[in-house]
Design a protein around this nucleic acid. Structure first.
Lengths: 139, 139
DNA sequence: CAATAAATTAGAATTCTTCTAAACAAGAAA
DNA sequence: TTTCTTGTTTAGAAGAATTCTAATTTATTG
């Protein structure tokens, strides 16, 4: 692990008004050091165990929510059985592979949504989420 | 309740290879007699209680899944806290009101999705779901 | 009317997530 | 540094939604 990386992560946390504790830094590292990730709490917990980071599941949940509130993560609802968190916070859409439960980002500009009808009275758009559900071609 | 309605519902169930039991007919009535519905298991259960239909929650879940497997309902994933079932099985998109948890269909032709990028290798589209999340305008 | 296959049920069990209250660690101030 | 305050972590309990189990009841078929 590179020293400057840790410094960057610490700044990222501080900017979000989150104290860079040992656990928080470790999670930030697991989440943000390696390209885009789409991860569940359970998965992140086992990643942490594998990396020999002692951290409880409660802390994982706490931090996933704090990161989300701070705009460092985005929660994704694609599957009723558990919540996913996406490290890509830019507007984007998603492929969801139904068999594997895998997510893949679609850049916003790679997909167009047009002609949204009038919104229900007294509401404004908070987001437009497109999920392209795919499944393995049986052959 | 109209007699012919019951006959229709019974046929609908038989066509789906589901025996028209007392509970199943009652649920079908609650679900399909009154325009489009977007409903959770808990909500359907309390509707049934109000209508004086004795039915257990396990049976509600069993039937929601059987109806879904038979193509009479469609499961909608919009909210991580509980599953919704939609009586509109035609292709459509959805408004989701974040404060109230209310869903509203958007006819397929009222919204256009274009330029879906190449699918992941070895997959085919199973559905394209657009959820327009709206929230009350604060004013 | 059996016989059999399907459906229903109460309650237990599971899974994911949140809560609680105590111990601990970080940053600020003296 | 030491002290104080406040934020963080934690184990384990609690909660909520859903599924399972195994026994009973109901629908259909012969």
């Amino acid at each position: 692990m590179v020293q400057s990386e840790l410094v960057d992560l610490e700044k990222k946390l501080r900017d979000a008004q989150l104290r860079p504790t040992k656990q928080r830094l470790a999670l930030a590292q697991l989440l943000f050091s390696d390209g885009n990730r789409h991860i569940t709490a359970e998965r992140l917990h086992s990643d942490a165990m594998e990396a020999n980071v002692a951290i409880s599941l409660a802390t994982i949940y706490n931090n996933l929510h704090q990161f989300t509130a701070a705009g460092l993560l985005r929660e994704v609802v694609v599957d009723s059985s558990s919540s996913y968190f996406d490290t890509n916070i830019a507007p984007r859409h998603l492929f969801f592979h139904e068999q594997s439960g895998t997510l893949k980002d679609i850049a916003k500009d790679d997909l167009k949504v047009d002609n949204i009808p009038p919104l229900p009275e007294g509401t404004e758009i908070s987001s437009v989420d497109v999920i392209v559900r795919v499944s393995s071609t049986r052959r």
